[in-house]
Amino acid sequence: MKRALLTGGSNGLGRALADLLLQRGYQVVSVDRSGGAAQPAMLHVTCDLADRHAVDRTLPAILAAGPYELAIFNAGASATGRFEDIPLDACLRLLAVNAETPLVFATALMQAGAVERHLCFISSLSHFTGYPGAAVYAASKDVVAAYAKGVRKPFAAHGVSVTLACPGPIRTAQAERHAPPGADAARRMPPEQAARAILDATLGHRRLVIPGAGPKLFALAGWLFPAFVTRQMKRLIFDRLDEAVW
């Protein structure tokens, strides 16, 4: 049976990815801080992905549960508000979950030969702009994006493709928690739609996937006029945030 490794499969985009993988006949190993609904063909591994020691303790079991046809590094946290209002400890935890742990997982899987065909790193549309109001989140997502681009060739030499996913806002509880007051949830993409685009791109060995037409245009605008688009992001998000949330 085909196996897939997924981080953060209990909620949001991760849950949609897990459902889709199950539908397509994969056995799914999900690593998340909280467990999830019990399903046949799905194994929940509980691990605080912000905790280095927990990651190191859990990795051997995750590697042993492989090999995986694909691995998707989806788990992520956010922190919104003024940079200086977010406690350093929260910043460091966020960096660990979003940036450090995916890189550590990727090299561990490669070294153990535990991933056979595809890796997918979930970054953010902010990679193409800037994200005032979520400076550390934006930094962590740029780490993942540059890493995915860097390892594409060397990992291909081991027969593993690397896909970088840069989704825009997705309709999840997490997005709701971090959005400025009054933001329109209906404009966020349903997680099922983003999951389909991301999984198809991963299985199709694609270098980059930006789900949806709107986000694609936004990425293009950010690529062409980075300073202007970042200033718009400030107006749309940073100036409207009324409190720090982490």
């Binding site: 003024r82 940079f83 960096l95 940036a99 890189l103 902010s126 990679h127 702009t129 800037g130 994200y131 005032p132 109001g133 979520a134 400076a135 550390v136 934006a138 930094a139 962590s140 997502k141 740029d142 780490v143 993942v144 994006a145 540059a146 890493y147 860097g150 390892v151 060397p154 980075p226 970042t230 200033r231 992001m233 400030k234 940073f238």
Partner: peptide, 22 residues
């Protein structure tokens, strides 16, 4: 030097955000 490059990308993302915030 994938992780080095990635860390420097993180600095770039931090700078793009902070330049506007500050």
């Amino acid at each position: 030097f994938a992780s080095y490059a990635a860390s420097k990308a993180g600095l770039d993302g931090l700078a793009r955000a902070l330049r506007e915030e500050w």
